[in-house]
Design a protein around this nucleic acid. Structure first.
Ligand SMILES: [Zn+2]
Ligand SMILES: [Zn+2]
Ligand SMILES: [Zn+2]
Ligand SMILES: [Zn+2]
Lengths: 146, 146
DNA sequence: ATTGATAATGATAATTATTATCAATAAGGG
DNA sequence: CCCTTATTGATAATAATTATCATTATCAAT
């Protein structure tokens, strides 16, 4: 992702914090910067390990607290993968599908979900269920890893 | 699920164990019976709680060991849900989609996955990724819960 | 049916991840 | 700059999972 877009995202997050009455503190900024700078979804322990390179790293408790706050604000989302489901990623607007490289972990967000609406409608007719949400994730290899 | 189908599944599991050199023991049978009899995906701790009603329940360690064995044999699969991802369910033949009631937890397996192949092909062309696998899960309410 | 090699079990200790506690610190409005 | 109080860091507590090991039970071979 371009550095400009990263800063823009981070600025939006800071605005969101202040609007909701959260203070913008150094530990929170450290965690948020690690998240928005990452190419791959990160687990809490990943963030903790990365933070140890910083001059004055946040405590592990603050990392968990910041993640809980970001989740409450809807700014991050959980990513489910065969290897585990505790990794997070900046939340995307509306509903999107995920494309994950099984080799390098790189993740892309796919626009346009109307394509499978027909399929969902058919399932609703067949089963009598009322479908309110869906998860679609594609796993494979990116161009670099092929 | 019909009791006949449950017994059939359990018999197949026992055959699979013996074929792979695993012994068929009482703790393993107790765990497997709980799994195949359930209407909803179960977490390890769910199985442990249910097992406490039995005359001579298995130790918690044997429950985890049995789940690991069943997973190694490909007989169970992990189910991902918003509330957590540690629940398991008997593995289905080939690739299927999942339909889960957010209210009662009941789960159905949807046949026929060729419907979204066009969508996946389109994504591959757009992104250059080679998609090898995908997860599609639908969440909503079943007829009973509506 | 009995035996025997050894896989499997149960009880529990150890580990790992996450959450709660609380005195000390620092953000930010006035 | 000061003051209120949200937040932090250190650490204790909790919860889930895994490892350890002496004892037990499976099942193939007699
Ligand atoms: Zn998951
Ligand atoms: Zn890749
Ligand atoms: Zn239901
Ligand atoms: Zn599918």
């Amino acid at each position: 992702m371009a550095a400009l877009a990263l800063n823009h995202l981070l600025e939006n997050w800071k605005i969101a914090l202040r609007q909701q009455g959260y203070r913008v503190t150094r530990p929170r900024l450290q965690v948020m910067e690690i998240i928005v700078s990452s190419e791959t979804p990160l687990k809490p322990q990943d963030i903790y390990q990365l933070s140890l390179d910083l001059e004055s790293p946040p405590g592990i408790a603050s990392i968990y607290r910041t993640l809980e706050m970001l989740d409450d604000l809807g700014l991050i989302q959980q990513i489910h993968q065969p290897g585990g489901c505790h990794a997070i990623w900046p939340a995307v607007e509306g509903h999107k599908h995920l494309l994950i490289c099984s080799s390098c972990g790189q993740m892309r967000v796919i626009e346009g979900n109307e394509d499978i609406e027909d399929y969902i409608n058919k399932i609703e007719e067949q089963t009598g269920y009322h479908v309110k949400d869906h998860w679609l994730q594609l796993f494979g290899t990116c161009q670099n890893c092929s």
